[in-house]
Structure formats: C-alpha cells, structure tokens
C-alpha cells in the first residue's frame, strides 16, 4: 500500500512515515498542501497513486482543509482515502473536515496503536503489519 504524509513539520512527517513504513506502506512526503498536489500529479504520471493521505491541518502555502477540497474536486483521486492528522481537536473542526471529504480524523498527540486502529477501521491496515 502507498501513503502520502503531508505535514509542515519534518519531525512529524518522519514519525508518521516511520510508523506507516513499519506497517508495510510505501511512503512519500510533502511539506504543505500545494506540494502534496504536485506529488499526486507527478505520482499519477508514473502510476503512483496513494491509498492513503495523512494530512496536517495548519500548514503554510495551502492548509490541510484546502488540500482536502482540492483532492475531492478531482475525480482522478476518488479512491484516495483522506485522514486528517492534526492538533485541531474541536468538534466543529472535525465536522468541517469530514464535510469537506476527509474520511477519518486522528488527533495529535497519538500513539502507533491509535493510527493502527484508524487504519484497521478504514480497511487500510496491510496484511502482515506487525502487531
């Protein structure tokens, strides 16, 4: 399975990327929504479309919510599962993200087990992922 981790923090990209790699994902990264759209576009050209995008909310250039709107507006990415991974934990923010087209929501800080549970719920936990 393939994942795109979008966060302006390199530390957070590394943390999320390491967990997903341990689960068996092939991971690419982007530092904000605009860069992530570029990764999706260039990836599509070579046949690389992610199964999952993990998306921070507060980022420069293009934030996570704008990215969700942009992806949902493009039929080519209809199959991509979008999961917000953010400190924005108020109910109103969660509702806003889900209404925009995000499928799941994970609040920072989180544990690898919490991410595993979300992936299992989404049917995106690769077979053979370590317990």
């Amino acid at each position: 399975m393939r994942a795109l981790v979008i966060d302006d923090s390199r530390a957070m990209r590394r943390i999320v990327g390491t967990i997903l790699t341990d689960f068996g994902y092939e991971v690419r990264q982007a530092g904000h929504g605009r860069e992530a759209l570029d990764v999706l576009e260039s990836g599509s050209a070579e046949g690389w479309v992610p199964d999952l995008c993990c998306i921070d909310w507060n980022m420069p250039v293009m934030d996570g919510l704008q990215f969700v709107f942009a992806v949902r507006a493009n039929p080519a990415y209809r199959q991509v599962t979008l999961m917000m991974v953010t400190t924005e934990s108020e109910t109103g923010q969660i509702v806003k993200a889900l209404a925009a087209g995000a499928h799941e929501y994970l609040i920072k800080p989180f544990t690898p087990d919490a991410l595993r549970d979300k992936l299992a719920l989404l049917g995106l936990l690769p077979e053979g992922a370590p317990a």
Partner: peptide, 16 residues
C-alpha cells in the same frame, strides 16, 4: 522544526 512541533501540539490541545 522539532521544538516548533512540540509547541504546536501543546498549543493545539490547549486551544481545544
């Protein structure tokens, strides 16, 4: 980056 992310996660949860 790392110190900023720590402040970000603390701040986001305090905001909530």
């Amino acid at each position: 980056d790392a110190l900023g992310e720590l402040a970000n996660v603390l701040g986001g949860n305090i905001k909530s």
